[in-house]
Amino acid sequence: MSTRRSLLVTALTAVAVLVAGCGDAPEPSTIPATALAPPLPGAEAITEAPVEQGSGVCDTEGTLSPGARPRPGAMPAGSAMAAIVANGRLRVGVDQNTYMFGFRNPSTGLLEGFDIDLAREVARDLFGDPDRIELRSVTAADRIALLQDKQVDMIVRTFSATCERRREVDFSSAYYRAAQRIVVPRGGGMSTAADLAGKRVCVAKGTTAAAPLFDLDLPSPPSVLGVTNWTDCLVALQQGTVDAISGDEPIVAGLVAQDQNLEMVGDPIGTGAYAVGVPKGSDELVRFVNGVLDRMRTDGTWQRIYQRHLSSLGPSPGPPEPRYVG
């Protein structure tokens, strides 16, 4: 690992510890079984599949086709886009704790990541200026409430569209597909999902990550701990409060990048597709955002921000094809 990379990993891990409000975390192998750390603030047991996963049957990726593309700064009168332009900035709910997608760079103090760059592209097409944006750090559990209360104009935060969520907010076309994976300490004897039997597994509250854990056919189900942020899961695993973490591959790969005593193991146990969330009934805004995403797919912008932030995941899979239903 280069000196620069090592410093970044060390700094990001330190940020994770500070965010969780804990002290220095020893490596899992150094923690006595009788001296496990207490649960993190805000942590709670999840005893059934969360409602965020939803039920029933719907087309989770079906969305409205792009409308006419207005010039930046000249949005149709009375539209949601015109209201945003009149406000002078685009208010976007993002993450500051998910490495590669939305995190605060400890060297600059700025928010960076794939989702951050995508949000700036929406601002570019609204204003002609990607910096006309207000980035608000939000937790996964608060995403829907913030849209319903109109405290943000949209959410760009590894937000998977589900049937349940579609009852409360609207979504753009999918801009990234991810498989759900498992992260464990290296050399700990866990290599597949079957090894989660009777183990303690950490997920972020308000996400869909807990649901596949309840669907595993195991002799003894895992105990699922929900925390506020994914970095809290990292701290919990470092402290020995949990035995594993399960989440979308780009999210947990970011945790592994911050602590290389960890590794991803086993086959995927679920999948998800990230989309931009907007308030319910915002058809014009959905069409506008889908137009931005179409532009990004065709002019190479999607590929450029993949290379900038996600290249460590491997060769680009290319942007998902949109599924327009209206």
Rank of each mutant, 00 (worst) to 15 (best):
P221C: 06
A83R: 15
T298I: 12
T139W: 12
G93A: 15
E27K: 06
T298R: 12
G56K: 02
T63H: 06
G54C: 09
I269D: 05
F214M: 05
G300K: 05
T241Y: 03
L135V: 01
V235W: 10
Q96I: 07
L111V: 11
S223M: 12
P221G: 01
P319N: 02
M296R: 08
L90Q: 09
L7T: 13
V19Q: 11
V235D: 00
A275E: 10
G277K: 09
G206T: 04
T162L: 11
Q53L: 12
G240A: 07
D215R: 15
Q96K: 07
L255V: 13
S137L: 09
G187C: 09
R124Y: 10
Q151T: 00
R124M: 09
T34W: 01
S160H: 11
L147G: 06
I245T: 03
D153H: 15
E52C: 02
Y306H: 00
P322G: 11
I116A: 08
G300C: 11
G73P: 03
L255F: 09
I269H: 10
Q258N: 05
G113I: 09
V292T: 10
G54M: 13
R297A: 15
N290Y: 10
P66T: 03
A236S: 15
S191V: 11
V169W: 12
V57H: 02
R143H: 01
G21C: 09
V325Q: 08
Q239L: 15
G300Y: 10
A194C: 05
R304E: 11
M81Q: 15
P130Q: 07
R323M: 00
V278E: 08
P222A: 12
Q96C: 08
G277H: 09
P32D: 04
G21F: 14
A193Y: 09
L216F: 01
I133P: 07
A193K: 14
V227N: 03
N229Q: 14
L18E: 15
A197D: 07
S316Y: 10
P50Y: 04
